[in-house]
Design a protein around this nucleic acid. Structure first.
Length: 664
DNA sequence: TTAGGGTTAG
């Protein structure tokens, strides 16, 4: 039985009052019935028949192509138009269907025309309830929430479906707070609700992180034996995952009786959003073993996980699967593909993607910028403007990043002005951060410092950290010390900041200060976040931690490292012992550095990939400076191109140098 | 005849 055919369940609190009488004095007002004349009625029946037959034919046509259950909303609208042209009078049964078609296509203009006919013919109806519910949903689907609400507020009777239509309308337009607000109102006045209502509300709970209401619904679901409703369970899985309770989500997912593509997609997305990307890919494999066909929505989460892990081969397989199965390259999927290729260091393949909207363009601009192709990124920004696509705030983060990676100070300044002047975008802290980087990266430390002091919003730790990083490169101790003070005040336990200043001291020969700072870190109990490096081989992502011996091939890897370090030392590599673990004994410092996660991953890559092939590694933190200088030499000695993506950018190592020009 | 689950860029 369909859920909407089930009797409406009552709202949860048992002591809740029955629903008050509808505003306007109660029951439905008597309406004048006006049936169409017999001849017209016959034509109306023929059209209904034609509509049904055509829908069925279209449905079969899609089915052949691998689509199921897909109606043809375009035909529905066309037939409605023909009805009107043939002077066939639509009735209360005709409108909901055509309005649903308008909702599906988000066809506002057509929807409004239908509404005009509703107004014209309203006195011929037995009841307007279904039509008004459909109007509410049509306007909301077309993003016209105010109009939807006007229809809703003007209804003489509001059933659970009317409320649910309005709530789902809010959800469709990402107005989560309003959706939850309306649900609470429903509870307050005792309208009751059903499973469909809960599904919409759970979506809103997930987006708002409203675990309290989400859990209340979960309890209701369990107490009322609704756990067999798989759609409702999927919504619960999604809600728990979005509220950060991924393991609870997994427990619910595991007890579901049947799992369709939506349930699998929800769980995979849950892992992906929680940065548990290896689990996301593992679950994707389980999904394939369970013979559930993924769709374009599944692929968005799978590709996002591949992007985070730098899993190029798996992502490439996904891309060819998309082509093979003719999955629709939606804007979401296209954007995710652009982002995936860019994040795997293959930005040229990202360019091949059809750029469609501001998201896709932004992903491309960002990708080019982080891969060190700033000027090209700006060319694409101009191309985007030529195609009349307006940039948004995130686009400008990409544009400003492109300027700082390419050392384009004047351009950076002018884009910052253009953002406000030409597009009315108020700069956020991230935009100010980009500007500090624009100045700092070319050595304009004083200017960057002045810029921070004149910011209209309070600088955060990221801003000061950006300045500190520039001070390290340009050896500006005075402003560097000042920057660290601010950083520590704002975020007292961030190990990387101490390391930046300590390296700055070391680089100008103030070794005592460097050691003092490191000891201070030790005394304050500030520990370094564990750094992970990932490398993908034959579709399997291997993960390494510093001084890790958990890998099954660990003995071979350590042997390869020994060989690698010996060879690069001959070529001029000098280990930077300041990068060693703080608590490491003096004699162990060199070994500690040589067992950093990046080096383990590179050594593994050297022994497991064919000579001359590119080694691709991803790291969750910034690459350490010792690994950076070692990798430059490794690329030369072993004739390998090595691409390392760290948390902020790409490093393409080739012939002894790096694309970042030693600034990152 | 009307309402219901999963997706993207810093």
């Amino acid at each position: 039985m369909q859920d909407h055919q089930r009797p409406q369940t009552s709202s949860c609190p048992p002591d809740q009052n029955p629903p008050p009488p509808p505003p306007g004095g109660g029951g439905a007002s008597p309406r004048i019935s006006c049936p169409p004349p017999p001849r017209l009625r016959h034509r109306l029946c023929s059209l209904h028949f034609l509509q049904t037959r055509k829908s069925r034919l279209v449905s079969l046509h899609y089915h052949d192509k691998g689509f199921t259950k897909l109606q043809s909303p375009e035909k529905s609208i066309l037939l409605f138009r023909q009805m009107i042209e043939h002077s066939v009078r639509p009735d209360e049964f005709t409108f909901p269907g055509v309005l649903k078609a308008c909702s599906k296509l988000r066809a506002l203009k057509e929807g409004e025309q239908v509404h005009a006919h509703v107004v014209k013919l309203i006195y011929g109806f037995g009841s307007t309830e279904f039509v008004e519910n459909s109007l509410v949903y049509m306007y909301a689907s077309c993003g016209r929430l105010k109009l939807a609400r006007q229809v809703f507020d003007g209804m003489s009777e509001r059933s659970v479906i009317a409320w649910s239509s309005m709530i789902s309308g809010y959800v469709r337009c990402s107005h989560w707070q309003e959706a939850v607000g309306l649900f609470r109102k429903m509870l307050q006045i005792g309208v009751g609700f059903n499973e469909a209502t809960l599904i919409s509300v759970l979506t809103a709970c997930g987006r708002l992180g409203d675990l309290e209401l989400g859990e209340w619904i979960y309890k209701y679901v369990v107490e009322n034996g609704l756990v067999r409703n798989d759609s409702l369970m999927t919504s619960l899985v999604d809600m728990y995952a979005k509220c950060g309770r991924v393991d609870t989500a997994r427990d619910l997912f595991d007890i579901m009786s049947t799992r369709d593509v939506v349930a699998w997609s929800a769980m995979i997305s849950g892992y992906s959003r929680s940065n548990r990307c290896k689990e996301a890919l593992a679950l994707f494999r389980d999904m394939q073993n369970a013979n559930v066909e993924p769709n374009e929505v599944t692929m968005v989460s799978v590709l996002s996980s591949c992007a985070v892990l730098g899993a190029l081969q798996t992502g490439e397989w996904v891309h060819s699967y998309i082509k093979k199965k003719n999955l629709k390259l939606t804007i979401n999927l296209g954007t995710t593909l652009v982002d995936f290729y860019a994040k795997c260091g293959c930005v040229d393949r990202a360019i091949e993607m059809p750029s469609k909207n501001v998201w896709t363009w932004t992903a491309l601009i960002q990708g080019l910028a982080s891969n060190g192709q700033g000027k090209k990124a700006l060319r694409y920004y101009n191309l985007m403007l030529q195609e009349n696509v307006d940039p948004n705030d995130v686009t400008f983060i990409g544009v400003l990043c492109a300027c700082n990676h390419a050392g384009l100070v004047d351009e950076g300044r002018s884009y910052f002005v253009s953002m406000i002047r030409d597009f009315g975008i108020e700069p956020r802290i991230e935009h100010y951060g980009c500007m500090v980087d624009v100045f700092g990266r070319v050595g304009l430390i004083e200017e960057a410092y002045e810029f921070i002091k004149n910011m209209p919003i309070k600088p955060n730790a990221v801003i000061w950290r950006t300045l500190l990083a520039s001070c390290r490169v340009y050896r500006n101790v005075e402003i560097g010390e000042e920057a660290l003070k601010h950083v520590v005040r704002l975020e007292p336990v961030h190990s990387g900041d101490y390391i930046l200043l300590s390296n700055l001291y070391a680089s100008i020969g103030r070794l005592e200060d460097a050691t003092k700072l490191r000891n201070e870190m030790k005394m304050l109990g500030i520990k370094k976040n564990p750094g992970y490096s990932y490398i993908e081989l034959d579709g399997i992502v291997h993960e390494f931690l510093a001084e890790d011996s958990g890998h099954p091939q660990s003995p071979e890897i350590y042997k390869a490292i020994e060989n690698m370090m010996e060879k690069i030392k001959v070529a001029g590599y000098v280990p930077d012992k300041l990068q060693a673990r703080l608590e490491a004994e003096e004699d162990d410092k060199e070994a500690s550095i040589s067992h950093h996660s990046e080096k383990l991953a590179i050594a593994f890559g050297l022994i497991r990939t064919s000579p001359g092939s590119t080694i691709r590694i991803s790291k969750n933190l910034r690459i350490c400076s010792d690994c950076h200088s070692a990798t430059k030499i490794i690329s030369k000695v072993f004739s390998r191109e090595i691409v390392i993506r760290d948390r902020s950018r790409f490093h393409h190592f080739k012939d002894g140098s790096c694309s970042c020009n030693d600034f990152w």
